[in-house]
Amino acid sequence: MLRIESLRITYGNAVEAVRDLSVHVPRGGIVALLGANGAGKSTVLKAICGVLTAEGGRIAGGDITFEGTSLRAIRADDAVRRGIVQVPEGRRLFARLTVAENLAIGGFLRGTAERAATLARIHDLFPPLLDKLDRPAGLLSGGEQQMVALGRALMAGPRLLMLDEPSLGLAPVITDAIFATLARLRDELGLTILLIEQNASRALALADHATVMEGGRVAASGPAATLAADPMIRAHYLGLSDSGSRRNVREAAPATARLRWPA
């Protein structure tokens, strides 16, 4: 469904944020893009969504195609029209607007009947939001805000749902609930998901396939289960020793400079 081939992204012709990245997201699959801060994950999302140019970046090589159509020159609103929808990092709700208004904005490009049907679905997925529809979204808890952010994206009728750090700043129990919802969306709706996460253990548990990025390059790529069993991934991204016990912070030093796979 989504193909990223030998992608190279630069900012201001000087900074190479992404180099020679290739990722394939099949229809109905969940693919995780993992890596530390600055690895280039969010830059890839910006390129897919059509907001890269507005932020001073450009695709300097390679291509991104969605169902065979290049996204190199796509505008953000056209990307949404095609069904490419993002849940941005930090949720970025419209804090002063109510929950209902946030959800309505998600469905901005859709017809009344479609919006009503999706809204019913969102109420089913996130019952805690039902009695908070008239509250300003900025007053909700972090978990509730993530529900609204996910609901808002669903209102757009996504065919490819992209989530940027959905577990950021959330309690483990809330993260569990969010990831369970993502699994449900894939299983029940056949939704295709591209997941960007620093929480590698949760992402690998959910995804079918994963790509680890480091310094803008692919450090590792393969089936999620294979990566989860890889000793290097376990040591550097999951913080686990070979025996499976949790390593302390000093032992689990950052992967940067120690971990290098050929690109």
Binding site: C49, V51, D77, V85, Q86, P88, R92, F94, E101, I105
Partner: peptide, 15 residues
């Protein structure tokens, strides 16, 4: 109203 609050996110919502 959404654009006034956060233009970038409004763009991501298809506005």
């Amino acid at each position: 109203r959404a654009t006034a609050i956060d233009e970038r996110t409004a763009t991501l919502m298809g506005i």
